[in-house]
Nucleic acid binder design. Structure first.
Lengths: 114, 114
DNA sequence: TTGCATACCTCGCCAGCCGATGTATCATAT
DNA sequence: ATATGATACATCGGCTGGCGAGGTATGCAA
């Protein structure tokens, strides 16, 4: 849906943390889930997500674990599953609050509010 | 309130267009108005706004006009007033819609939605 | 065996925020 | 007189980070 990429920035981290707090996921899956959950309004690219995941892991907000894909899904494939750390959970809360504040402030101006 | 700068990005253009469609304003004023209107939740910097204004003017979305400040406000001062062009008004509508779509999509994930 | 989906990854380009810094004017306080 | 601070404009360089393009490897279907 072609949002200006600048809008995309800033939303990546909070979204990844929120999804991973629901359940552990692997990178490729995250891309698909985000695109599906937003009905294609957000179109994440792998070139965006993977570096972001590595940054988050480097910051200790998420952790990774290699595992085999379930036999009934994709037998023989290796996947790198990410989960949120304790530190990441705190950050996620902070970011969600931040988003709420921010989107409220912007909407107030944009959607005709004093 | 210290939003990650990435969040700030992308909101600058639509906000400037929205404010200038209300009435013509000068740069310094825009900074103050945004900060006031959002109760300090957004803290715009001049180093951010002025280049943005120049970009917008370069893109033909806004136009500028030097004028003296009213005598009862700041006598003897020059101000550069900006107004939205016709092209800018169209872009503003597009951006407002974009923001609505985007914030809906992000909120759906962040604030516990399927 | 060609193609496509899955699944991971890196690299370089470039857009743009912001701290720092600079200019000039005017009002106020010392 | 002089310093301070608000007003009002501006630029510059550092750094961050999205994304297009490209790469590797596997499994499955046509």
């Amino acid at each position: 849906m072609d949002f200006s990429q600048d809008l995309i920035r800033g939303s990546i981290v909070p979204i990844v943390l929120a999804l991973l707090e629901e359940r552990a996921m692997y990178g490729y899956e995250i891309v698909k889930v985000v695109n599906a959950r937003t009905n294609g309004r957000l179109e994440w690219k792998e070139g965006t997500l993977y570096p972001a995941l590595h940054r988050l892991e480097g910051d200790g907000l998420i952790s990774s674990r290699w595992a085999d894909a379930p036999a009934d899904e994709a037998p023989g494939r290796k996947r790198k599953y990410y989960a949120v750390t304790r530190k990441g959970k705190a950050e996620r809360k902070r970011r969600a609050r931040e988003w709420e504040q921010f989107s409220t402030a912007v909407s107030a101006i944009l959607l005709g509010g004093a």
